[in-house]
């Protein structure tokens, strides 16, 4: 049985960059909001909210699950959070900071999603790549399978910023900060580089939205496009927490098991005034 029902492939002939098209906007923004990003002292603690919402940074829709929470400490090793729990609108965890340097806090999801028709009804399935063969009935038709890599993250630093936690995972879409993510200030351009499975995510739209949407009439979305090297440069005039979002979708001509690949990335960055 083959699950591949591909639209035959003009696409395969096109260069990879041209295949990266913006993924359809997810209904809600996903974010991890830390209580502080720049901290001093021998040890400290940040508390982090995890939620999906439209307004930033408002608790109004649903909590984010913390099953895939991964925190990398300044030494590159995992750090255990203290999970407080989930309410109807947000999840909360505390993160003790005992080492000096930068922590990368991420919810990273990696899985596949299948859509198919069975007995005249539309079905949806979510799981892992290994389960594809067994999870989708043989008599299913119009099978479409996409691989989804999603990353939602933020960064905090105790003491001087460091880079060990910021190394690319090479999976999905990710931001590799050029300007350190905890050294962002108003009036100085912040440079960031986006990678898709470790390669520059060229010519991709990246959205930046300042928090506080409730208190303004405009959406305040600033869209930048990455260059050939996956770079964007953002100049912020107003301090605050900013939400970053990007997504790609591409055909998976090279992969017999899946039809398309999607990758999404969201982050919260704090810009401080000097």
């Amino acid at each position: 049985m083959t699950f591949k029902r591909k639209l035959l492939s003009l696409a395969a002939a096109l260069p990879a960059a041209a295949l990266l098209t913006a993924a359809p906007a997810d209904a809600h923004r996903r974010w991890l909001l830390p209580s502080a990003t720049v901290l001093s002292g021998d040890s400290e603690l940040v508390t982090v909210d995890a939620a999906a919402s439209n307004g930033l940074f408002l608790f109004e829709h649903r909590p984010l699950g913390l099953d895939s929470l991964t925190i990398v400490g300044p030494d590159g090793q995992p750090v255990e959070p203290k999970v407080i729990g989930s309410g109807d609108y947000r999840s909360v965890f505390d993160l003790p900071l005992t080492q000096q340097g930068t922590y990368r806090i991420a919810l990273a999801n990696d899985g596949v999603m299948g859509f198919y028709m069975l007995n005249g009804e539309r079905q949806r399935w979510r799981g892992s790549r290994a389960e594809i063969e067994t999870a989708i009935p043989a008599e299913a038709t119009e099978v479409r399978i996409s691989e989804n890599a999603g990353r939602t993250e933020t960064f905090v630093t105790l003491g001087a910023p460091s880079d060990d936690a910021l190394q690319p995972t090479q999976r999905g879409l990710e931001m590799i900060p050029v300007t350190h993510p905890n050294d962002l200030v108003t009036g100085e351009p912040a440079q960031m580089r986006f990678l898709h499975n470790g390669q520059p995510a060229a010519n991709m739209e990246v959205e930046f939205v300042k928090g506080g949407t409730r208190y303004r009439d405009t959406p305040g979305v600033q869209t930048l496009t990455t260059d050939a090297d996956g770079m964007v440069e953002l100049l912020v005039e107003e301090p605050g927490y900013y939400y970053v979002e990007a997504g790609t979708q591409s055909d998976a001509a090279d992969d017999p098991q899946i039809d398309s690949r999607r990758a999404s990335y969201t982050a919260v960055l704090e810009f401080l005034p000097l």
């Binding site: 720049v38 901290l39 001093s40 002292g41 021998d42 400290e44 003491g159 001087a160 910023p161 050294d183 200030v185 401080l272 005034p273 000097l274």
Partner: peptide
């Protein structure tokens, strides 16, 4: 226990230019 160091980063400019290192 050095608790007073918690607020050193409130001197944002100094913290960035010197204090944090």
């Amino acid at each position: 226990g050095g608790e007073g160091e918690k607020w050193l980063s409130d001197m944002r400019l100094w913290w960035r230019r010197a204090g944090r290192s």
